Amino acid sequence: MHLLVTGGCGFIGSNFIRHMLESHPDISITNLDVLTYAGNPANLRDVEDDPRYTFVQGDICDRSAVDGVLDQYHINTIVHFAAESHVDRSIADGSVFVKTNVLGTFTMLDAALAHGIDRFVHVSTDEVYGSTPDGSFVETDNLNPSSPYSSSKAGSDLLALSYWHTHQLPVIVTRCTNNYGPYQYPEKLIPLFVTNLMEGKKVPIYGTGQNVRDWLYVLDHCRAIDFLLENGQPGEAYNIGGGEEKTNLEITDTILRLLDKDESAIEYVEDRKGHDFRYSLDFSKLRKMGWEPAFSFDEAMTATVQWYIDNEWWWRPLKEGSQ
């Protein structure tokens, strides 16, 4: 497999590259990343000397750059992570989300078609379905996104699937729940709260903290994408979940307990605009194919918190640089 990973210096992409190098001895991986604020080469410092791995700095919106990478590295498989993904940033300015998530995905799809790519995995999010007070979304449910971020991802999902229906480009779409684990940029809930508590700061909870998300350990997400590279059917979408629905307050309580802190560290703040109350995915389609999460929430959260404790060298420069 000659694999191109877009956005491989990001949180999920870097974990995926590491997983694939560990699991597939004969693979070659090219990582195309423009290195925005969330793209960090330090995420892959431990594999940068692996002869099977190559990093290329470039923009997925730049067709000539994409064509050059596909040609030079004889790419036959693409896993497309590259995206702007922070809801709060999309509320402040949605333009970069439309450019990267919609135009960038279109550029990748069109180049993949021109180069005869064998498999294209487009990595998306549960947020495209919108919020639901009860029940869980299946892959055939209508998309009902509510933020500029999730709307741009929904648009890119539809573009990806259209390339199968119109051109027979062998595309599959994956939609995952909230990921957590090592190397997650510390603007997201779990790394922000862990590192704030390590710095003696409070943790900001939107509204009442009762918003519900399903939590998926990033290594389980990587395993699922690897599984679908082999077993997914072109033109299909697949939900990937952790089966661990928690309120934001429950996640906070877990972090407080693991760091031996109490509720005095919580600071309730004004709720996010248009804050979706609950995301929930039915991922029985993937389960019936033979994939299951391998990590329990308790063991994965414990390992995650410990990783941030042990790797202050990684997160502290990021937090200081964003202040």
Rank of each mutant, 00 (worst) to 15 (best):
V96F: 00
V96H: 02
V96T: 06
V98I: 09
V98E: 08
K99S: 05
L103R: 03
L103F: 03
G104D: 10
T107I: 15
D110K: 11
A112F: 08
A112Q: 09
L113C: 12
H115V: 03
H115S: 04
H115P: 07
G116S: 05
I117M: 03
I117N: 09
R119L: 04
R119G: 00
R119I: 01
R119H: 06
R119E: 00
R119D: 00
V121H: 06
H122R: 12
H122V: 13
V123S: 02
S124Q: 05
S124Y: 05
T125P: 03
T125M: 14
T125G: 11
T125E: 11
D126A: 08
V128G: 07
V128A: 14
Y129W: 15
G130Y: 13
G130C: 09
G130T: 13
S131F: 12
T132K: 11
T132C: 15
T132M: 12
T132E: 10
P133W: 07
S136A: 15
S136E: 13
F137R: 08
D141N: 14
N142C: 12
L143M: 09
L143G: 03
L143S: 07
N144F: 14
N144S: 14
S147A: 10
P148A: 15
P148Y: 07
P148M: 10
Y149A: 04
S150G: 03
S150K: 02
S150N: 01
S151A: 12
S151N: 01
S151H: 00
S151V: 06
K153Y: 05
A154D: 06
A154H: 10
A154I: 11
G155I: 02
S156C: 04
D157C: 01
D157T: 01
L158N: 12
L158R: 12
L159Q: 08
A160Y: 05
L161F: 08
S162T: 11
Y163R: 02
T166L: 15
H167T: 01
H167S: 01
Q168T: 03
L169H: 13
P170F: 09
P170H: 03
V171A: 04
I172E: 01
T174C: 05
T177P: 07
N178S: 08
Y180I: 02
Y180A: 04
G181L: 02
P182G: 13
P182L: 15
Y183K: 04
Q184T: 01
Y185H: 05
E187P: 00
E187A: 01
K188D: 09
I190W: 02
L192V: 06
L192F: 08
F193V: 06
F193C: 04
V194K: 05
V194P: 03
V194R: 00
V194N: 02
T195F: 01
T195D: 10
E199A: 10
E199P: 00
E199G: 02
K202I: 04
K202V: 08
K202T: 10
K202A: 13
V203K: 04
